[in-house]
Design a binder for these strands. Sequence first.
DNA 1: CTCCAGGCGCCTT
DNA 2: AAGGCGCATGGA
Length: 309
Amino acid sequence: MAVSTNVTTFAAPDYNLTATLESGQAFRWSRLGESWEGVIDERWVRLKESDGQLTAETALPCREWGWLSQYLQLEVDFGSILSTFPPDRPMSEAVDYCRGLRLLRQEPWECLVSFILSSTKQIVQIRQIVRLLCERHGNPIPALVPGGLDHSFPKPTALASLSETELRACKMGFRAPYLLETAQCVAKGELDLADLGRQPLDEARTALMRLPGVGRKVADCVLLFAYGFPTAFPVDVWVLRALQRLYFRGRRVSLKRLQRFSQEHFGPCAGYAQQYLFHYVRTGQPSRTDRPPIGGKSKVANLDRKSKE
DNA sequence: CTCCAGGCGCCTT
DNA sequence: AAGGCGCATGGA
């Protein structure tokens, strides 16, 4: 029989926990010294990496740790993913910079909300909004912190029952009506998030993009970070600049063409490759001044507008 | 002060 | 189809 414990250790070779938790795919992790603290579903957990091992400590005892192994995707064969990356200079530099960066497998609702809130926000701001949302509208859960409590991510029904004013009080600005309508849609069962993972990528993406505040980019983040569709390829401003600079001689390229290029060039784990490039160009090149490659504007036409069906 | 941030929706041509 | 702009909020 399994025994309940508060601590366990996993063998995790080729796992770069810091790069993974700092790479902008999840927004509830905080570094304290050598440790990372966060909440997965209803469990508070502290993680630490050392010598190819991950140590986890929870606030409440656990009989089994599959929930954590699943979240961290510890069973994934990292080498087989690396072997699919194209052997070009940009990809090699990105892998050298953050080798062991992994994709998490997040809870779909939390992931969807987080990325609805992400538009035109810096990561530090997204984290702040999500923190407020959880503190004010999530359930209190035991945590190994001063005060002893943290909060779970608020369920669809909890957010659907709020007013737009209450959401705006969490600093999310014009995203509040998007989130409210999406929460009401999910709470009423008009969209079954659990079912999306059983659908083909294109159908799941179309379903997500019917939600207000969810365009191609946000949909692909959810498809990649929550459902694990390996070819979902979110193109944000960072990835746009990186692809244009590294693969198109700094020339502007339409979003549609970039998406076709991403599938052809990066292959069956294109989403993984995207995360390496994103983390590399966003944090790994201090010389970059965050400017578009050539001549002023970096915006590209939105070629993926929703069809009314 | 201005500019812009892991975009989206809606409006013009 | 393709491009432009406003939308809150806060930090540089």
